[in-house]
């Protein structure tokens, strides 16, 4: 697990260098942040091709708006929020039932399906873990999926990325982790491994 605090700092440094004219720094920045952005997009109920498009769109928007981002450390939150908002737009377009004037309250935290689990997870321990994770609420799955991309969490960035008030991040993460650990502790196979 790479520390998210460190992730934010690494991203800020690369972004600042990119903005100062070292345009080639965009490449390591893309490599650093794409896993996080991918999992944000996928946890927002986006199919894989849509998630790929949205991540691409977020980077295009970032380059367009690079000069307006005053604090380089905000780049992770900026990209994550953009992915979430673009995902929300897509889900709105698909539902078409609600007004575009509605406030963005965060993306739909639903998993769009991950494919044939038995084929993808060859490892018995991972299959057991997925069995428990998949029983958590969609919101918990989303939070743990995104937070797992960073160790010491940057609460401000996570709040922006997930569209959750900053004061709720810690308690929600705590509740979701406790629910998962509790579920795992009742599994004799898990305890025995």
């Amino acid at each position: 697990m790479t520390g998210q605090g460190r992730l934010v700092d690494q991203a800020a440094e690369l972004f600042e260098q990119f903005r100062d004219g070292q345009r080639e720094k965009i490449e390591p920045l893309v490599g650093l942040l794409n896993p996080l952005l991918w999992h944000v997009a996928r946890s927002c109920n986006l199919q894989r091709p849509d998630a790929e498009d949205i991540v691409q769109t977020a980077w295009l928007l970032l380059v367009d708006h690079a000069e307006n981002i005053r604090e380089p450390k905000a780049v992770v939150a900026w990209l994550g929020t953009t992915v979430r908002r673009e995902a929300w737009k897509i889900s709105r377009m698909e539902r078409k039932s609600q007004s575009w004037d509605d406030q963005d309250t965060g993306c739909e935290p639903a998993d769009p399906g991950v494919g044939p689990v038995d084929l993808l997870l060859q490892d018995e321990t991972q299959r057991m873990l997925w069995d428990h994770v998949s029983r958590l609420s969609p919101r918990c799955q989303q939070i743990l999926r995104v937070i797992s991309r960073g160790g010491a969490p940057d609460y401000a960035a996570l709040s922006e990325i997930l569209g959750i008030p900053i004061g709720s991040i810690g308690p929600t993460r705590g509740r979701c982790l406790a629910a998962l650990r509790n579920s795992l502790s009742t599994d004799a196979h898990w305890s025995a491994k």
Binding site: P35, R42, W59, L60, L120, Q126, W130, L144, S148, G151
Partner: peptide
């Protein structure tokens, strides 16, 4: 959390073309 990160890396990894696609678009 570490196990969850590895779980999703196996279950739903980013497409191999994701980074290159972004760089070409840029």
């Amino acid at each position: 959390l570490d196990s969850i990160a590895h779980l999703y890396d196996s279950l739903d990894p980013p497409p191999a073309s994701l980074n290159a696609g972004v760089l070409v678009a840029l």
